[in-house]
């Protein structure tokens, strides 16, 4: 599910990078508020744990094995915002150190897996603490954990697929249906793995599993619902009409097949005649905007920290 560079069209990766910067900024601020400074090592070590956990194979039948993805597990144990922060760090390390996922596509990958994926896991966990299950007081029900892990993987995968389709990568219907089937299966596997691992963790020490309501906030619930809706919509749109997304993208002028129609095209048009200069300028302008937002957000956080 890690999208490499040059798979997404310029408007798509620019837009997702631009969305990601404030989104990560908000998550970082929330995580900083929820976890005291003393828990920074915990978030880092938990990231290393999720990395290492992928080495443990789970037999799932037919001679194949699956492994943990981890978004929902982190949401159950650290809380939503710290989980999103840890997943962002994991994806960044994967992109830079392991060349797993692109650098320009970092925004897309972070959005799919760390922001939308983790937020989607939050929805089933909300309200769990308010109605404690009889046999596990204070804990989370297995159904909720399963749903969280299932939604987390499904939403990430369906967003990645939609982004590729919007970028104009043509997929024959059988290939598309096959990959969607595989997504559902891997989401089911993630659900099963997360339920049994969280169960085992709870048995070791019930204190490890956090009540989702510790970070209860209406904004997070709304964002979580939005992530689920976005993921499911992408899934339905892709399955019902394989070229539906593409047609939609063409109507919005998002594909680069013809020419660049991004938000900066009009700005650049008067200055340059050569189409590539226009595109490169638009790309650079996008980057500058991203940089500006990034610097502003980090300054804002720094000010709130010191205040």
């Amino acid at each position: 599910m890690h999208i490499p560079d040059n798979f997404l069209s310029t408007p798509v990766w620019v837009a997702l990078d631009a969305i990601c910067i404030p989104a990560v900024g908000i998550m970082v601020r929330r995580a900083g508020r929820e976890m005291e400074d003393t828990r920074v090592p915990l978030m880092g070590v938990m990231g290393a744990f999720v990395f290492a956990a992928q080495m443990i194979n789970f037999p799932v039948g037919l001679g194949t094995s699956g492994h943990l993805v981890g978004g929902a597990l982190l949401a159950c144990t650290l809380g939503v915002a710290p989980a999103a922060l840890v997943m962002t760090a994991i994806i960044a390390i994967q992109a830079f150190v392991f060349q797993d996922g692109g650098v320009l596509a970092l925004g897309a990958n972070v959005f799919n897996m760390a922001i939308a994926g983790v937020l989607a896991a939050y929805l089933p966990l909300v309200g769990q603490a308010s109605r404690p299950v009889q046999d596990r007081p204070g804990g989370l029900s297995h159904k909720a954990i399963f749903a969280a892990a299932f939604l987390s993987v499904l939403v990430s995968a369906s967003l990645a697929l939609s982004e590729l389709l919007i970028s104009g990568i043509a997929m024959p219907k059988p290939v598309l249906l096959l990959s969607m089937g595989l997504f559902v299966i891997s989401a089911l596997i993630e659900g099963a793995i997360t339920v049994s691992v969280v169960g085992a963790i709870e048995k070791l020490n019930p204190g490890f599993v956090q009540k989702a309501d510790a970070s209860n906030s209406r904004t997070l619930v709304i964002l979580s619902a939005a992530a689920v809706v976005l993921g499911v919509a992408g899934f339905v749109l892709a399955s019902s009409a394989p070229d539906g997304i593409q047609r939609l993208a063409l109507q919005l002028g998002l594909t680069t097949k013809s020419s660049f129609h991004g938000p900066f095209a009009d700005y650049a048009v008067g200055y340059f005649d050569s189409p590539w200069l226009r595109r490169a300028t638009a790309g650079l302008a996008g980057l500058l905007v991203i940089y500006g937002i990034c610097a502003a957000v980090s300054k804002l956080i720094a000010r709130q920290r010191s205040a």
Binding site: G32, V40, G47, A48, A52, L85, A89
Partner: peptide, 26 residues
């Protein structure tokens, strides 16, 4: 270049203990 400090710190810890925890998993 503007990445939030907390994110950078978490990534640093992650990278530092990646080898340690991976070895344990191994």
């Amino acid at each position: 270049l503007g990445t939030p400090r907390l994110l950078v710190l978490v990534a640093q810890f992650l990278y530092r203990y990646l080898f340690v925890i991976s070895e344990q998993a191994q």
